[in-house]
Design a protein around this nucleic acid. Structure first.
Length: 211
DNA sequence: GGTAGGATGGGCT
DNA sequence: GCCCATCCTACCC
């Protein structure tokens, strides 16, 4: 989904009903949508589903705590947490209110506010490295733990549909950097997109006839 | 091209 | 006290 020509046009903000589905459905449906924060925006090209319940990789697996409260709350809100003492990761809460489940946003293809994003990521040499990883994504977009719990169906941090929806090919792979439930194919990405944090292994790439 | 190791702090046992 | 849903640098082909 390289958009070398012209300006990306934004469609409507995704409504709470978009998020009020199971986390795997939401993780797949978010591919090709636009994360927008102020002037900065990017196409979501890589996600991971963190269903609650039996998935021990999910923060919510061990129940309701001060940290996991947001994940059990209403859909369409941001869950932001600190990882490795240094970086922050943005999730979008899925599932109905009272049920745990969220989607980690792992990589964006930047389409707007590039100058601002480069200022926030002075070390990123290539455009492909600006937001290609969960920690890089939050840095580039100016998202911090101050955004934990905010409603992403009402600005300034929102997800929008593109003005012209395009069919999105989806590949599924194991999630990155986890030990529990490491084999479950709950990472979703647009195969061949150069902005993903890591390419899918060829054997795991969905072919057009599989969709 | 590749990988090993360190930085750094909150959550939970 | 241990475990991380990570990133960057140094160093080695």
């Amino acid at each position: 989904m390289m958009t070398k020509t012209g300006r990306m046009r934004f469609g409507p903000i995704l409504k709470p009903s978009f998020y009020q589905r199971d986390s795997v459905t939401v993780a797949r449906a978010l591919l090709g949508k636009l994360l927008v924060h102020g002037d900065a925006a990017g196409i979501i090209v890589e996600t991971e589903a963190y269903p609650g319940g039996a998935d021990l990789a999910s923060h919510s697996a061990r129940g309701l705590t001060p940290r996991t409260r947001v994940i059990f709350g209403p859909p369409g809100h941001a869950y932001v947490f600190l990882i490795y003492g240094m970086y922050e990761c943005l999730n979008l809460v899925a599932e109905p209110d009272g049920t745990a489940g969220c989607v980690l946003l792992r990589a964006l293809e930047p389409v707007a506010g590039l100058e601002q994003m480069r200022e926030r990521r002075p070390r990123a040499r290539r455009l492909e490295d600006l937001a290609s990883g969960p920690g890089r994504l939050t840095l580039a977009m100016g998202i911090t733990r101050a955004h934990n719990g905010v409603d992403v169906t009402r600005g300034p941090l929102v997800v929008r549909a593109p003005a012209v929806a395009l069919p999105v090919e989806i590949a599924a792979t194991p999630r990155i950097g986890i030990r529990q439930s490491a084999d479950r194919p709950l990472r979703f990405l647009i195969p061949g997109n150069p902005f993903v944090s890591r390419p899918a292994a060829p054997a795991n790439q969905a072919r057009p006839q599989d969709l």
